[in-house]
Amino acid sequence: MADVARDVLIIALAFTTSTVGSLGGLGGAILLVPLLTFGDMTIAEAAPLGLVSVIAGSVAAGRTQLRDGAVNHRFAVVTELGATAGVIVGVVLAGSISDRVLTYFLATLALLAAGGGAIRKGVRWKPDASLGADSIGEHHGSLSGVYRLNDQPVPYQPTRMGLGVSLMTIAGVVTGLAGVGGGFLKTPLSSEVMRLPAKVAAATSTFTIGLTASTALLLMAIDGRVVVSDSALVVIGSLVGGTLGSRLQRYLSPPVVRRATALVLTVIAVVLVVRA
């Protein structure tokens, strides 16, 4: 009976954190891992489950986000080049900075990102009535695209890519050093620095964090740290949570998505400080 209760609890936690994570493109691992450690799990045991949660949530949300044309793959690939290079440097340098200093730094970044998203009012990109529904998606040979907002096509063009990719690289170094996913930094950087619409930033970040988590999970599998029975429980909860989060995102306005993301970022900052 205790085993069944434990299994149900893991599924419920994975479901909740993946719903919240895919709503704002933040991933859910940074919330799921501390929650799992409140039970009988160590961080070393919970970390692979966090990665499984991010992958399953990302894949589940991806289905809806692909159908909505909300993911900008070209933007994802370009920014992920910087972030991945940063993560490699960060992992190699891991241990050179005190965990406590790093955690407070991450919490500060999360709060700054939360503030940036919460303060901004209104919608940056406006609908264009001249565009048809067939224009939804990303453009050939460019980082620009069109996304759907309240059934209206909205064109957008990311800007400040040089600065954005540089900051993504630094975010990659920080996340590599700290051993956390970078979703909570990538989404605000994409929307507030490179001016991607909030929904496109969240959908694109959801894709890239799944990619990063797959690579990290492969490394943990090589180390023999992945418990497949517990991972399957997380897969079930996160597939449902990721699907629900992406559907909720479809019906919420950009300011609401930004405020919800800001709230979760604040919770993440508090969780980080409490863990430190």
Binding site: F207, L211, V228
Partner: peptide
Amino acid sequence: AHTLNTAALVSLGALPMLRV
């Protein structure tokens, strides 16, 4: 059960890379 769980994990884990 182990084989089924592993299959679920591998198929999900490979998907983002296959997408790229």
